[in-house]
Structures are given as C-alpha cells and as structure tokens.
Design a protein around this nucleic acid. Structure first.
Lengths: 186, 186, 186, 186
DNA sequence: CATGAATGAGGGTTCATTCAT
DNA sequence: CATGAATGAACCCTCATTCAT
C-alpha cells in the first residue's frame, strides 16, 4: 500500500525473476535496475548491497518452504500421514520451475563462499528436518534411528529430484515415485 | 607420456583443485595458471577457453562416477544386491569433500546457462539411471514401475545427501540411513 | 538562540567531529546527516553543498586560531615576550588531536584544488604572520629582516610540528624544544 | 631499456605528474591510464591497485629526500656545518613545485586513513631526524637535549615552509630566513 | 611451445546533488 | 521546515580473451 514497500517489493520481484532465469552470478545489479526501470543508485537506496538483495530473496524463499512444511505437517494429523508427506514432496517438485531453480541457485551461492547465506540456509535445513522427524515419530514410525534416517532421506529426495528436474534429464514419473514411497516406507 | 599430456594433466589437476575449493565462478584463469606455474598465454595454448577446461573437468568427473556405478553393479551379482547399492550410496557421500563439491559446482554451472555442460551431464544422468534400473529389475524388484521409481530415488538420495553434507547442516548418520534403506526397500 | 541556529550548529559540530576523525574526503554527507540524526534533504536545507559545510568549518577553525594568536600577542606586553610566544606554539601543538587534525585536513583540501578554501586560508595566514611580525618588532627584535624571517619561521614550526605529531613519528620532546627556542632566539 | 620497465616507469611518471597537479583523491586510475595512453586493464597488469601506485610514488619520493639529506650531511664535514644545513632547507623549499606538492599530498593521504603509507612515511621521518641529530651533535652542538630539539625543529621548518609555499601566502624571503637561521642558531 | 603484455567490457559500490511532497 | 526517494556519474577493480614475439 505504501509507496515505500512498493519499490522494495518491485526490486525483489524483478531480482528474483532474473536470478531464477540466469542464476545469481549471472545477474548483475545493472540488470536488476534495468528490469525495474530505475537507476543503480536507486537500487542502493533500498538495498545496501547485492548480498542484501540475495538475503532478502533467500529469506522470502526459505519462509515459503517452512510454511509449506508446517502446513503439510498440520494436515497429517487428520489424514493418512504417509500419503500427506509424499504428496508434499511431489507437490514441491512439480512446482520446480518457480521455486526449485531459486532453491538450487541459493544453495550454489551458499556453498561457493557466501558464508552468511550458507548459515541462513543451514539453520533452516536443520529446522525442517527436525519438524519432519518429530512428526514422523509421532505418526507412524516408533523408532528414533529410523525416524531420523527417514527425515534426512525425505529432504534429500526433494533436493535430488529437483536437481534431476532442472537438468531435464527425463520426465519424472511422479505417480510411480509416489506409489513406491507410500508402499515401501512402513 | 608426452610432455603435452603432462601439462594438460597438470592444468586439469590444478583447475579441479581450485574449483573444488572456491567454485567455478570464483576461480579465474589467472588463478589456475598461477597454481600450475605457467602463464595465462600457455594456458590458452592447451585449452581454448575456460569452458574448455570446465568441460574437461566435467568429463573426467562424470567418468569417475560412471565407473563407480558400473563397478557397483558388477559386484551386485555375487553379493546381497541391496546392501551393495546402499553401500555405494553411502560411500559416495562420505567422499564428498573431494568429489561431491565438484559435482555440485558442475551442476550449478550447468543449470545456470552453460547449455553444453548441461547436455553432457544430462546424458550421463540418464545413462546412470538406466544402468541402475536394469540392475534393480534383474536383481530384486520384479516390477517395471517400481524399479524405475527406485532408480530415480537412488540418484536423488545421493545428490540430496551431498547437498546436506556440503551445507554442513549436521553430521549425517550414515549407519542409520544405510540400515533404514536396506530394511525398508523390499 | 533560534532553533535554526541550533540545527546549523549541530550539523557543524557533527561534521567537524567526523572530519576530524576521518578526513574530508572520507566523510560523506550521509555520514554527517546520520550523525546529526536528520535526513540528507534537511542537511541541504541548512547548507547548500558539501563545500558550504567545509567553508563553515574552516571559518570557525580559522577564527579560533586567530583569537588564540591575538590573545597570545596581548599577553606579551606584560610578560616576557619570547616565553609567551613559545608557550603559544607548544600549546598549539599539544592540543593537536582536536584542532591540529582539522587544520591539516583543511590545508590538504585547500591545496588539492579547492580554490575558494585555499583563498580563505591564505588570507588568514598572511594576517597571522603580520600580527606576529609587528609584535616581534615591537617587543624584542629591532630589525625588519629578522622579524619577518622569524614570523615565517614561527608559523612553519607550528605547522611542521603538527605534521610530525599526526604522523606519530615519535613522542615530541616539547620541553626541550621550548627551552631551545627561548635560549637561542635572541 | 627493457620494454618491461618502460611501461611501469611511464605509468609512474604519469601518475606522479597527475597527482602532483590534482592530489591523490582527485586522480583516478582512468585519468592515469588515459594520460599514459593505455587501458585501465593494462594499468592493473603493471600495478595491483591504486595503493600499489601510491606506494611506488611514495617510495621513490622518500628515497629522493633521504638521498638529499645524506648528501647534505656528507658535505657538512668539509664546510661550515650550519650553512650547509640551512642551504639544504632553503634548497628543499625552492624546489617545491616539483617535490613539495607530492610530499604534502602523501602526508595528507597518510594521515587520512592510509595506514600502510603512514607507516612508510613515519619510518623515514624518524630516520631523517636521527641522521640530522647525530650530525648536529658531531658538528656544532654539544648537548643532547638541544641537538634533539633542533632536529625536530629543522624538519618542522621544512614542512611548515612547504605548506606556506603551497598556499602561496606570499613570496617567501628565503635569503632573510637563511641569514636569520645561521646567525641565531649557535 | 610459451609468454608477457594489452585490452575492454562489465562488476559492485559510493556519493553529492535534486526535488516533489 | 523537513524528508524520502531518486539519480547518474564516477570510482576501483576483475577477468576472459587476444596476439605479437
């Protein structure tokens, strides 16, 4: 509503868009400013550095995932728990074009020397895994070692399938994968 | 044997080393030349461009993985198949510091606009998955849909665990994960 | 008295403080506005440009020195003149941290292309030297050439010792210098 | 003779020239490259940073002064010592347009946050003063306190007169100043 | 074979200044 | 009076690439 937030939002949207298309290292501040239709100086009025923009994108992105996981976990109580988690995984991957790319680019940036970003992501991963683990324990696996292992595996599967999706290796057989997971993981 | 190959090898090793440490975008040709102890001009005598070097690293790296998978598959015949595959996965991840980083950096580069690299990797991923799938079918799953799903999942799990390892989220409980996979995947 | 003057004074004080710490070129208008707790726009309401602020600082600073010199000269009449002048010199230098830095920074700025500032300072230097010279003539040196030479020398000594002090070459032996000057300059 | 040194020398000369005219902060690398007739990239091939260039200028400049002082001191043995030192001072100042400006600009830069430069200059100042002091002791002042005080004063006078010269306050009466110093400082 | 030298396009960043509200 | 927002020129620096020798 306020004109203030508008411009910051515009920049964030344009930056996210460009980075989604070309990656972080291939997106210059000039590109972003250009895309928004402002000068580089204006960009620096709203964000103090390129990292600042990246962090902002990361925070927004990481929160979206956190919300999705929490939402997924809450629904579990009323329905068949396994199905819900698998559904979440598949859902997550099929929306790759919009969020999966950003996710991978942020991880690339993080493990390539951007330590503050790495720390941010690290914290979230731990949080996500713990959320999943305690839900798994409560719902359908009564074994600490197993629930922990599964929590690591679930997150790995999402990230791994995203990579394969982005590489466009082949059309992923979501249905088969979902069925397999549901049947085998008890 | 010829000094030519020696120098090309030296460059490749130094480049791989630097890229493993700092990532592709953070490794300049000057860094590589410097590390080898030659001039940038000489570097260009052996490789026609930075991409040329990256392709070379990628080829070498992808072949190593292919060999490992083939090796893994051959051993399956004589031993308990599940154990062998799981062992491979865990092995792959515990050697992350040396090959996992390069793997992720190459994937990052590939999905960030380096189309020729992406194509190279894509081809290998398909090959790897097909190898795994046909082995799974032969050995312990008599169902096309399931074996396909599992082949996608196995590759995902490796990549996904590599990511978590690189993010240093937490110490990965390899033993638990291995046990869980072996027990649940029948 | 009016709130106007208050704000102008506040800006001046903050600007002087920052410039004393970091130098003119390393002090931005944003820094000053920030330090005062106002916006850059407001800063421009009170001062028309960065140079305007610098001139204001310079005027204030130059007046302080002028007053000190006049004060020094007036006291001479009643006391031993040499002692008084030497005392002034030493005094001037021992307060370097607060005023000496600004003095040097202003001179740097002046001789680096800021012509209006240079002119302002030039005028003051001439005035100071003339004041000293006529006082020297009246008090203890009955020779035009000598008194003129000494007036140049006195000012040089102050500036030169300030430089050595700012460079923190070594602890300046003020006592020895004072004694030497008093004993030799008759 | 070698083309190597030629370009480095050319850059150094052009940079010194520009900085002498406009000061360090007002001389951009683009200006220097432009003046030499090369690209900015070439500039960075020969010098690793702007500071690198500044240090080079500083080293060259400081060495010139050191040589002059040593030369001055050596001549003292055969001639009237006071005259020689005074002559040196006056000489130093009358050549201001070429070296005095650079001297002041380097000092400005040093005391405005360029710590490595400050340290370089600091070391030289101490060395210069010690050289002067021990010479004074040997030649014409048999008193440790006095010789030390005088060494500080001599250096101050040079720097101080350089400032007045650069401010173009008035034409400096070199003859009178020289006469005064020689007559009074015994 | 190998190199030193040169390049130019582009990167992120800073900052004095302007102006509508 | 005061401000937030916007600007654009300039700054230092990086780097893949080229080429004469």
């Amino acid at each position: 509503m306020k004109p203030n937030n508008n411009m910051k939002q515009n920049i964030l949207i344009a930056a996210t868009d460009l980075i989604t298309k070309n990656g972080i290292k291939n997106t210059s501040l000039a590109d972003i400013a250009n895309s928004v239709g402002i000068s580089k100086g204006t960009l620096y009025y709203h964000y103090s550095s390129k990292d600042d923009i990246i962090f902002s994108i990361a925070d927004s992105h990481l929160n979206i995932i956190t919300d999705a996981i929490l939402n997924c976990v809450q629904n579990i109580k009323t329905e068949s728990p396994k199905d819900k988690i698998v559904e979440f995984i598949i859902n997550k991957i099929t929306t790759i074009e919009s969020t999966g790319r950003v996710h991978m680019y942020l991880i690339c940036e993080a493990i390539t020397g951007n330590e503050p970003l790495k720390e941010r992501i690290r914290v979230k991963y731990i949080q996500w895994r713990n959320t999943l683990k305690s839900e798994i324990e409560k719902s359908f696996i009564d074994n600490k070692e197993s629930s922990e292992a599964l929590s690591f595996l679930l997150i790995s599967i999402v990230d791994g399938l995203v990579i394969q999706s982005l590489l466009k290796t082949e059309k992923l057989p979501y249905e088969n994968i979902a069925t397999f997971l549901i049947n085998k993981w008890y």
